[in-house]
Design a protein around this nucleic acid. Sequence first.
DNA 1: GATGAAATAGCATTTGC
DNA 2: GCAAATGCTATTTCATC
Lengths: 160, 160
Amino acid sequence: MAEALDEIDVRLLAELQADADRTNVELARLVGLSPAATLNRVRRLKASGVIRRVVARVDPAAAGFPLQVYVAVTLAGAAPRTSRAFEDEVRALPQVIAADWVAGETDAILTIVARDVADLKRVLSRLSLQGGQRLITYLRLEEIKPPSPLPVADPATATD
Amino acid sequence: MAEALDEIDVRLLAELQADADRTNVELARLVGLSPAATLNRVRRLKASGVIRRVVARVDPAAAGFPLQVYVAVTLAGAAPRTSRAFEDEVRALPQVIAADWVAGETDAILTIVARDVADLKRVLSRLSLQGGQRLITYLRLEEIKPPSPLPVADPATATD
DNA sequence: GATGAAATAGCATTTGC
DNA sequence: GCAAATGCTATTTCATC
């Protein structure tokens, strides 16, 4: 599907994951290409889906969501109808800001934000009603490491 | 610490979380302000820390990390020295792309990417050596809901 | 105290090489 | 991929509400 990423693509990805709030000219200097070539590469990375999107990361507490939790969910059965209903609920709840099916001790891991305890309670309740048989809630206390770039350029993880 | 966010700030945050890859002029049209006023507000949001940063979100698999896992960690004891050593290891491991202390069934939740099983094994091993007494690993199978904006403008979560 | 309009400098983007 | 050229945009300034 996708072309292999060369050295310069990897540098671009590293830079843009760290800080996408820079001009194309600056990016070009960082990777040692002309602005035109840089622009073409970045466009290709976006079009190919390697760069999924460029977004502002907002501080949840500062934006009015002091409660952030991870929730590990065990579904009530494996019937497609059950998981489908659960998926729909997850996508419909705006407080659920990320969710994945997983393999392990539970079926899904959700990331949820809430304005207060009542707000959180409402969300958990709705998840229960849509097949969430067991919800293990982890309240986020403190950040150890902020969301960080994929180590695309890290020698310790290099494959070649 | 921070000023209250008014209606327009909220709109800006919603737009920039959804897609920060737009010109200031376009953003200005979306919120109904002049480019100059829009620029001032966005700058303020960044300077105040409400917008933590603007980043490119990269597809992990496309970037060479087909394995993504959540790991719930129980520490070996609550001694400050233990948690400090663990924090240092987490920050030093590039494959750990996010980590938080939590309250609940475990002490911390980590998000980890790996190029292959050997790579993952190495990371888990190092976490064990730095106080990770019990590691519950959840292998990410499929995305239910992609990382999504905080529902800053959602009426269902409104406080006023 | 923040906004809008005008002006300048710089950038994004295109084209030809 | 580069260099030059064009049209927009970011950013500042300043008057204004």
